[in-house]
Amino acid sequence: MILQRTLTTLGARSMAVARDAGGVFVLLLEVLRSLVPPSMDGRELMRNLYKMGYRSVPIVVLTALFVGALMVVQLAAFVKQFGATALVGWGTGYAVFREVGPILIGLMFSGRVGANNTAELATMTVTDQIDGLQALAIDPIRYLVVPRVLAMIVCLVALTVIGDLVALIGAMAMSQVVLDIHPLTLWYSLVDNLSTADFLHGVYKSMVFGAAIALSSCYFGLTVKGGAVGVGRAVNAAVVGAAVSICFLDFLMTYLTA
């Protein structure tokens, strides 16, 4: 009895997940098809670049400062125990560039920009503005989705680069305070041991994360049903979808580019 109910729930939920994943994939194909011939609404693109990029800088800088400091706090016990001060820059840089930076900034970006975008598109959908666009013979994919996907990829890459650097500043400040390591020591430990490949590894990831966040947020925004309640639910689904995609794609990219 309980088994049957559990299986039914599990089946229904897998179906829903499969439907949404399929929907996101179809949206990806439609976006790709809209890129030939390449034409884009420049105004929509600029508006979104400003809104998604420039205005996310404060939250990304704050997050990155804390994350950098946090990395040092985590390493501190280990470093004190073994006196491995030369490794702090290396360890922090490796973790921040390759994993922590792209993932945490990606999650924050999804929470701020992805969620915002879902809310905007969902509001447009429930107030029939998408139908209005179609009735004006304007393709919503080409006009709304394509510039947003592009803007989110560009913004997330830029923000990840900024965040990586700010996290290093946070790490330098923290290691000076708790471990008495000079910022330059940390810097040399980093540049001596890490290559551009480590840095680029994170940049590639942020590119893919940006696309995933954009597609998830646009998909759930455009398929919303049911008024104000529906808008909230769509935002919820979009951020969850983005978080799962980020973790899954991170795994995939780590394997593929290792």
Partner: peptide, 17 residues
């Protein structure tokens, strides 16, 4: 067709932005 047949929606559907 949508260029020849226009539609005015009940909720006006002006774009908020």
């Amino acid at each position: 067709i949508r260029r020849r047949v226009a539609m005015v929606f009940q909720s006006s559907t002006l774009f908020d932005s």
